[in-house]
Structure formats: C-alpha cells, structure tokens
Design a protein around this nucleic acid. Structure first.
Lengths: 207, 207, 207, 207
DNA sequence: GTCTAACCGAGACGGTACGTCTCGTCTTGCA
DNA sequence: TGCAAGACGAGACGTACCGTCTCGGTTAGAC
C-alpha cells in the first residue's frame, strides 16, 4: 500500500491534496509496523517514514501512539459478518471462527492487547476502544438473537433490562473465552473447540 | 516465587552471595511503580531507586522489564484460595470474586495485561507467564472438581483426556469472561453478575 | 575553527539548520569543565548540561570526547601572535613566553596533554591534532624567519628541503622544551629560562 | 622499582605475606594491556584477570590506575644506559636513540603520556612520576658531562648553581625535543635527525 | 602442631557515565 | 501556506567499570 508521491500531478494548487491519502497510508503503515515490530518497539517516527509522511503530519492528526493504534486496529474488526448457516449454533460457530481468525493476525493481537493494557490506566482511551472496537461488535450478538427469534429457536424477550444484561454476559463470555484461549492459553481455536464451547454456551443460556 | 534468572541454587560457592532482601524489595517496588505509573511509564531505573538498589543489581537478576513484571505480578495470584462454601456453585462464586478482587488492584491489571500484550510477540515470555501465573491457577479448577465429586455433585470422570479438555475449557471461559468483564467492558464483577455467570457455566457443563 | 563532523556546507538544504550558538556554547563549556574537572573526570553529559544543550546535540556534532577537546583547545592556540621586538632573539623570547602562558592555563594543559596521550593509539586523532593545533603554529616559525631575513639577521635559504627540515627541527626543539619544562619538570618558564634557552637555540642554529 | 603503596617493611608480622609473584604479574599484565588497549580502555578488572589475580589484590597494592601505570612504565626507562662511544657527541646520539627506541614501544608511549596528562591536575602524581621516571634519568646527563670532562671535552664547572641549571636546561631540551618529534610530530627519530639535533645542542651549549 | 591474622579467588554491591534511542516540539526551505 | 526534513531539549535504555564489601578457603609464622 505505497502511496506517497503521485497525487502531486493531478492537484494543481497548494492546499491539502495529500491529506486524505495520508490518513490511509499512516494507518496501513501502523499495521505493517505492528506486524514487524509489535507495539512496544513501534515508534511514531518509523511509522511516519513508512508512510512517506513527516512526523509533524502524524502528530497533527493523532494525539499519540495509543490513539493511532486504536484507529488502525478498529478497521480490522469491521470485517466481521454474521453468516446465515441455518441454526443459531452454526451461526455462533461461524462468527467465533471469524473472530479467532482476526485475532490470529499479528497486527490485531499485538495492537489490541497493547491498547487494552494501556487503557487500564487511561479512562479516555478505554472509552475510545469501547466505542471504536468493542461495543461496535455487539451488533453481532443482537443480530444473532434476532435471527434465532425469527427462526423460533429463541422466544422473544420480555424484560428489556434483563435482555440487555444477557447480551453483555454473552459478549463477555464469548469474547473473553476466545481471547483467553487464543492469546493466553495459546491453544488453537479450531472447529472442535468451537463446537464444545458453543454447546456449553447454548445449554447454559437455556437454563 | 519463580526464580529470577537461573537457579544458582546453593551450589554457587565462590564470591559474595546475592542479597535475598534485594529480591523482595525489587518486586515490591515494581508493584508500587505499577500502581503509580502503569507499565509503559515504569522504568527500571525508577524501580531500582525505589528499592534502594543499583540498576545493575536489577539487571543481574532479570533480563528486562517484562520478566520482572511477570514475577512481581505472579506473587499476587498465589493468594487465591478455593473456599469451602458447601456447594460447587458457591465455591465457584467465591473464587471468581477473589479473582476479580485481585484484578481490581491496579498493580495486577496493569502488569498482567501489559505482559500479556508483550507476550503476543515473544514466545518465551508467554511460556513464562503460563508457568508462573496461568497454569499455576488451574489447581483451583482441579480442587473444585475433586471437592464436588466428594460431595457427589459431580460424577467421577471416566475419560481422562476428555476431563483435561474440560478443565481447559472451563479455565478459558472463567478467566476469559472475568477479565473481559472487568478490564475491557469495565463493568463491575459483583455478586449478581457472578451468580448469573456461574449459573450459565454450571448449566452449560451439565449438558 | 575546525569544522566539527562534516561540512554540511550551505548545501544541506532540508530541515532545521544546526544552531551556530550551540557550537560556541559547547566549546566554552568544554573548556570550563577542563578547568574544573580535568580531562578524565570530564563527562559529555556534564558539558551538555553546562552548555544548556541536550547530549544528543553534542553527539550529533562530535564523535566523542577526544574530538571535542581537540576543537576546544585548538581555539586557544590561535591567539598566538609573533610580536615585532626588533631582533630575532627578542621575537623568539616573546613568542615562547606567550606559548608558555597559554600552557599555564589549566584548560590548555589538561586538554592538550590528554588528547596527545590518546593520539598515541589513534592515528586519525593525531592527524586531527596536527591539523588543528600543531602544524597551524608553524606559521610562527616561518614568519619569524622571514622577518629576520628582512632585517638581515638571517641569510635567505638556498636549499628549500633543508630549510623545511630546519623549520621542523626548530619547532620540535622549541615546543618540546617548553612543554617539558612547564608540564613535566613543572618549573617556571620565566624570562631568565627563556633567555638561556633562546641563546642555546640561536647559537646552535648558527653552527 | 618503586614500592607499591607503602613499605610494610619487614615488620608486618602476623598473617600470610603478600605474594611477590603477584606484583610482577600485575605489572607485566598492565604493560600488556597498555599495548593492546591503550590507557583509556585499560581497566583494572581486566588487568587483574590477565594477571590471574583478584581485583581486591590489585587495590590492596595500588591506589588506582595512575599509580599502577607509573610503576609499570618506570621499569622500562631503567634500561637506559650511557654508552661510551668515544666522544660527547656520539655518547649523546647513542642515548637519544635509546630513549627514542623506548618511546617507540606502545606500552611506554601510551602509559607515559597518559600519566603525564593526568599529572597536570594531580600534584602527588606528578611528584611520583618525577621521582620514579624523570629525575631518575638525569643521571645520564650527569654521567655524560663527567665523562666529557674526563676526556677534556668540557671544562670542569665552576658555579654549581649554574651547572645545575644547565643540567635542567639540557634535560628539558633533549627529552622535550625527542618526545615532541616522536609523539607529536610523529616523525622518525632516526640517525640523521639525531645528528642534526646533537649538533644544534652542542653548538648551542658552547656559546 | 595448633592457632590465628592476613592473605587469596570470586563475585555481588551501590554508583556513575557511557553512547544510543525515541519522544514530542520547533524551525527551516521548497513548492 | 502546508509539508518533508531534520535539529532540538529531555530523559530512559542496557552496558561497562568503578572501588567497596562479603564470602569461603589458603598460608605461614608465632606459640
């Protein structure tokens, strides 16, 4: 994703013909640096160089390393889709496998875990992460439940507050278990494990 | 505690022996610095100063910041005990609440998350974390199951391989969910949540 | 003065130019530190602090302590002037006394002797010293001879190679004797000694 | 050789006596390290290792690097002998060439220049150098004059004070010129140069 | 033939300075 | 006027030696 030096020809004037391209180049360079170096070795000067951009330009747009990495990682998780595989269990298995696949990419695991770690001391950063990454994916839980209700696999909810609590619980259990399995236990999130986990989850929820 | 760099057991004869007090002072200083500064602002020079120790002494015993923080944090999790509250559900609730209480301490959350983030690029570090922190706590799952079997709440396992897989699954689900709830969702792990979660887990396992 | 690391003449276009004031401040701070601390206790960090400059700025311009001290000391010897006292003997006495006066300054003696000592193992450093300090002062011998020839005190040279060898011999004898007297024997280079030495030199050369 | 720290005469009664072999090994190791590393890179720990001795042993006998190097170098100059070549001029040429030969050895030039440089800030060190190295060689000037007087080349001195001043002057001129030629100008002290220099000296002294 | 004091090696200790690296800011000159 | 280039003050990095201080283990002379 090399950008740098061509937009000059088309744009006649001074101003900011590069500005739009620079954003994409910087985020791509950030992900590339995460892959090669990890978070702690990643430097903003290096990202600027990779992006063909001056450090000044980078600091004009992001307050620091954390904010930059959050934006660079957030784009990755928007790829998640809820497949229609016919049953709730199959839908869950599909989305869990997708999630695991993204977490298997070094730019995702390095970047995500690092900013989560930083966020334990930085409330604003935690909010940014929740807004940009975490809460945005609760759409998948909601969509899955709606589809299961249409299929008649789940009854319509009666108590909205209880339903919201259940969404949160599911989200913590699913995301937490996959992250723990993959990043901490460092065991594969393969089809067998996903089947066991999904059975536990669905049986547990039916109780 | 996990021994710092190499054992040098009692056999290391010649020369002045390493100060045992220094180890404890350094680990305590590390935890204090984690509370005040977090992981990324923590510097080894500062830790050494707090511990009343020379920087060289610190580097003689730990290879770097990550290894030091792992040892400093590992001690915290050894406080976990499996209470005997009469039923399996109550036992689980008790240990989950203890786990959440440790994770609520800044030195634990900052330190643990940071080294987990670093470990995504450092296989040796991940092994160190597993050996010092994670796997060491599987003892709680094993003890809980044994006690429940004594009480007759759970049947004795028949297939050992299947039993081991179940232990791992439980561990990923429990630790993952609590960590996600507390550190990522930033919602309280209170008695109500713990009750909901424990019900989900036990019902799920009974399926 | 000798340019620090590389010319970077005016052609070095892009980027913020190096501060000219910093160079002067650093060299002055170096001399001050030589006076207070001597060469072996002088640290580049301390020089940077005295100069109100970051250590990096200093390392950007000089490769190390030796090169810095050479430049700092070289400026001192450019103060030497050949006075016109009417006779060759008086001219020599005048310039020897000036030379001795400079060597009496701690920043000159400390700095000069130390870099000379270092230069015994570092050919590049020796060349730098010769170019910056030693050979540059041979101008005094040449000027003195020319003036004496104008006055008729010395005949015009006939063999240029022989004349060059004589310049070198004079230079080694004068500079060597003064340095040895002042820095090694630690005896004063006063008017009486200078008169004795000049007589020896001039009589010796007439032979 | 000069005794290391203080005499500890023979009166030091009880306890194990110091190893005499260690002294010799340390001084030899010091010279070897001077050859390989020069003064500034020479470390006492390395000298101790080379000598097969503990650092403690070394510090028990010398106060520091400077004192150690002075002793190590002093031994080298005691090799100087005044040859009897028949005439004063030939005697001087012989001893100057010997002196130049010693100064050509790296351990001598490195060590000597470095401690001289250090001595510009350390009066005690300068005295130690004068006592151990410099003044000890004035014996050569005295012996040369005595022999020349015996031969009738020089008249017996009449004024003892004047004679002493002349010895000092000669010593400064000879040692200074040779050191400057060899170590600063970095030109060879060969027979031709020595002849020119000796003529200058003897003619100058006859005036 | 023990004592016993001073020696010895090894190596850890609290320090200091090293030279490098990255930070985030601040000039410059070019277009 | 916006941007690349890059110098700037600041400060942590991990390493190398410093000179001191335990350690356990030899010596050799005095008793």
């Amino acid at each position: 994703m090399v950008v740098a030096m061509q937009s000059r020809t088309t744009a006649g004037r001074a101003g900011r013909p590069r500005s739009a391209a620079a954003d994409a180049a910087i985020l791509a360079a950030t992900r590339a640096a995460l892959v090669e170096l990890g978070w702690s070795r990643l430097t903003l000067g290096d990202v600027a160089t990779r992006a063909g951009v001056a450090k000044t330009t980078l600091y004009r747009r992001w307050a620091g390393k954390n904010e930059l990495v959050v934006d660079a990682v957030a784009e990755l998780f928007d790829e998640l889709r809820l497949p229609d595989r016919g049953t709730l269990a199959a839908d869950i298995e599909g989305v869990v496998l997708q999630f695991a696949a993204i977490l298997a990419r070094p730019e995702a695991r390095n970047g995500l875990m690092a900013v989560l770690a930083e966020s334990t001391r930085d409330e604003a950063l935690r909010e940014r992460i929740r807004a940009s990454i975490v809460d945005r994916q609760k759409r998948l839980v909601l969509a899955g439940r709606a589809r299961a209700q249409q299929r008649g696999e789940l009854p319509p909810e009666t108590d909205p507050a209880e339903a919201a609590r259940t969404v949160d619980l599911i989200f913590d259990v699913v995301a937490g278990a996959v992250v723990h399995r993959e990043l901490i236990s460092a065991e594969p999130v393969d089809e067998e494990w996903v089947r066991s986990f999904t059975r536990l989850l669905l049986v547990g929820l039916s109780g």
